[in-house]
Design a protein around this nucleic acid. Structure first.
Lengths: 369, 369
DNA sequence: ACCTATGTTGACATCGTTGTCAGGGTGACA
DNA sequence: TGTCACCCTGACAACGATGTCAACATAGGT
């Protein structure tokens, strides 16, 4: 039982015959990946018919469907999605590119998971990459996504301008910015209300009588970091606190830099009675410093973005929690809405933040506690 | 300035002329994605020459390179990686499929990040999916990866057998199993020594005099859960503890089920003096239950797999930590080694675990503390 | 028996790219 | 001046699939 495949060429009369031994047992056949032509040959039908069966198109007889399916199963045939896409009318790769801060950050993990869930329900696979707040990585990740012809992009960005995406947007590729808003370009975005959340946290501390409140922030290039700083300072201003002497420490991007900065802050001549930390890793660094100096029970702390197990610490960590799950879901839904033909103007979706009181934010200023 | 593209057909003398208006300004041109033909036409060279420039092939004059690059930039041309792959000799998509427990689990996040780092250094993009310990999801995720022709697979699995991957393995696709070992098939795997780690945790508790030690485990279908249970029970056996009355609770898969099971356990007539929880979410659930009943200072707890902020809790949570970062890195390196032609027999790489004492595991049995 | 409507099927061009190959230009050397 | 080698270049087929279209078989109506 020898199976032959005839590849016809355009030159009339010129034919090349490629013979394969029995596809079910020969190592040769097993080594190369079966194509539709192999399935067609084994089933004794044309390739187009195989295509019809694989894609569930109508007008194929039941007997033919059975033959083709049997052949496909025998050969362990897997259609090549990308080859199909080359010719397919809609040109969709059923693939999405997701760029987050870092895939091992809990916030990003939650966003990712939500995006995946929406994508999965539509048979779309997700490329995930970590930004690491590096503009070069941003460029390379986006470029890698586009070279792979993703149907849509969900991006956390850090470079000064995303204008480089303008041509791609014009071609109709949906781009949704998450967590941080884009610059130099207009497109959908899904973000927390950073300034408002920061103001909320700040007001919470002010209401408890704190006047020396310190700000621990991420690098200034990061849009949300600027927003949170703004919300913090504006709230102080509204309360009539002179912002000149307020300790504003920026450029913190991981636990360790945050811990060291907090140590320095607490050991200064006039340490703050309360701290607002503007990011989850910074919050953790601040907690470590407070513990290290035994000051965690007399220095108030409110963090922006929730921290794992924050409720199990003593005191529990009061935070302005974002809703990463909802951010991710909403972003994915926007991408798919665009793919489904939504041509509304670009919209900014603001996902509310929520203050969760757990103890650390309710500590009163020293001398009044 | 009108740019024309001539598509020659095979029929001699039959030519179709497609005219595009100026590609730099017309909305028409901007809407469709530029191909090599567009770039070639604008640069006034052949497509193959464009291909050479884009891929950095040698033997192209400096002047031509400049012309092509200028045209590519003007049109914002992005090569289609998948179209190229169709013809390219090695057939590599520079893409990898990663299946983890859930992308929002900290263990999985760390594995993912490590895989990404290795992949990025080789220009390979990563598809990430969540397994959710659902055999159907496993099948669908693998199938989705294969239809997209990933170069390699890194898989956490849950179905009873991975024999369905045999044909794919025969075709030479590298498959590396992480965290859990495969069944029904032989391929590379990178895992923690689960039985050994569990025994380590158990011994730690036994050495401190505990005799009523409870086991809180994940679902029995999960290979690592079985291994950890085995290590636990074997260590009890070695210490001469009768395993008949040992509370072994299985089937816990999230914080809440673990919390409820722990509550029930602690409220039984003869509660354990120590708990071994075999997974990070289960550990967290157990912590919550212990706190809830105020028993966290008199009931010892050792968890398998580290928990975020475990060192900041009071007491700190003693764990047998895995090294997810190393597991991910090693798995990715194995995939690339296979792709680079390594044909050694399949190997199981065991990444050591490490007991981290933080307090909860050093609590002595009641009446002796 | 004849025509038409409908269902089934496969040949062929095509998607965007790369491999092959052959043709032409240039410079070195005899 | 002729030969040869080398560099540059582009026409063409091919990769694995789908869209188009025409051919054919079958059934139904006259």
């Amino acid at each position: 039982m020898l199976m032959c495949i005839v590849k016809s060429h355009t030159h009339i009369g010129d034919r090349i015959v490629t013979s394969l031994s029995d596809a079910t047992s020969s190592p040769d056949a097993a080594r190369s990946r079966p194509t539709m032509r192999h399935v067609a040959a084994l089933a004794g039908v044309g390739v187009k018919t195989v295509s019809r069966v694989i894609n569930g198109e109508p007008n194929v007889s039941a007997a033919t469907i059975a033959k083709v399916n049997a052949a496909a199963r025998t050969l362990d045939y897997q259609p090549d999605l990308h080859a199909g896409n080359l010719r397919r009318a809609d040109g969709r790769t059923r693939t999405l590119g997701l760029l987050v801060g870092s895939v091992d950050n809990p916030f990003a993990g939650a966003v990712h998971r939500a995006v995946e869930d929406v994508a999965l329900s539509r048979g779309v696979a997700v490329f995930a990459s970590s930004l690491d707040d590096d503009p070069d990585r941003e460029q390379e990740a986006v470029s890698a996504f586009l070279r792979r012809r993703v149907d849509g992009l969900i991006l956390t960005t850090v470079s000064g301008s995303q204008a480089y995406l303008a041509p791609e947007l014009r071609r109709g590729t949906p781009v949704v910015f998450v967590d941080r808003e884009p610059a130099g370009i207009t497109s959908d975005s899904v973000v927390s209300d950073n300034a408002d959340g920061a103001a909320l946290a700040t007001r919470h501390l002010l209401e408890r009588g704190h006047r020396r409140v310190a700000y621990l922030g991420d690098r200034h290039v990061i849009q949300t970091a600027r927003e949170r700083r703004r919300g913090f300072l504006e709230e102080l201003g509204r309360a009539g606190v002179a912002t000149r002497d307020v300790p504003v420490i920026e450029g913190l991007h991981d636990e360790e830099t945050a811990r060291l900065a907090t140590l320095e802050l607490l050991e200064s001549p006039t340490p703050p009675t309360a701290i607002f930390s503007s990011q989850n890793l910074v919050t953790i660094g601040a907690i470590r410093a407070l513990r290290q100096l035994g000051r965690h029970r007399d220095t108030a702390l409110v963090g922006f973005d929730d921290v794992p197990l924050a409720d199990l610490l003593d005191p529990g960590i009061t935070v302005v929690a974002q809703d990463p799950q909802r951010i991710g879901r909403t972003a994915a839904e926007r991408v798919f809405a665009r793919l489904d033909g939504d041509h509304e103007p670009a919209a900014r979706t603001i996902v509310p933040t929520r203050l969760i009181e757990r103890g650390s934010g309710e500590i009163l200023p020293r001398g009044e506690g």
